[in-house]
Amino acid sequence: MRTFRLIGQFMRASFQEEAASRTNFFVNLLHSILNLGTGVLGVVVLFGQIDEVQGWNLASTLALLGVYLIVSALRGLFIGPGLDALAGMDGKIWSGTFDFTILRPLNTQFLVSVHKWRLFAILDLGLGLGVLGAAVARLGVSLSAGQVVAFLLALFAGVLTLYAILLAFAALVFWSPGVLFTWVFDAFFQMARYPVGMYPGWLRLVLTWVIPVGIITTVPAQALSGSLTPGMLFGGLGLAALLVVGASLLFRRGLRRYASASS
């Protein structure tokens, strides 16, 4: 109960901060629309030339793009803003205000993950859902209840995986506070816009098992198009759990290493 009240307070304060600069609203709106437009046009241009690539057609690839937009929006909503605030030259660790985060009588990982929200991302979430809905309608199949459950489970595993990777990358900041490690991740995450099957074999393996951004979007999209095997679904869930545990351990090690910027 207290956790929810706490998160409510964080959301409230974040929203007030966001609302403090009103021009940003239109800039954010522009960015959201550009992101949506380039994503959709990229897929449309590709399938204007060809009907099918490696078993993916326009509708299923658009569904995957929808999942990508939804997952990115969730990240932008609360995981991203908090974790991104740690790194970089003006980040909390470099400037030493992370001291205050550590001194709070709460689990530091929890605090870091949920203390900052970007409510504007709800619009992105809506756009993502819109793309997903349109794509499913185009797919022209009626989804069984089992498929919907599988999709939701796969999406949950995807979001957990994303969280774990972001947390692990953020933890690296304790070793090198100036480096924006999440940028490396962002670059790889871009690849999740397309199905892993569209990449050459070696990269497919990397994107599935090493930096598993591929399965964050590919597995849920497969659940919708009906090409997902149960093994892949449970493998994905297991991997997500493993990653969360591993990332938490890394974060805790990083915390132990943390020594404030000034002596």
Partner: peptide
């Protein structure tokens, strides 16, 4: 002093065309 920052920037800029390279050559 910010070397990692610049390599990261360059890496990030390289990725979008690289994605389309891979997608189109697979297609």
């Amino acid at each position: 002093q910010y070397r990692s920052f610049f390599f990261l920037l360059a890496f990030g800029w390289m990725i979008p065309p690289l994605i389309y390279l891979l997608v189109w050559s697979t297609a």
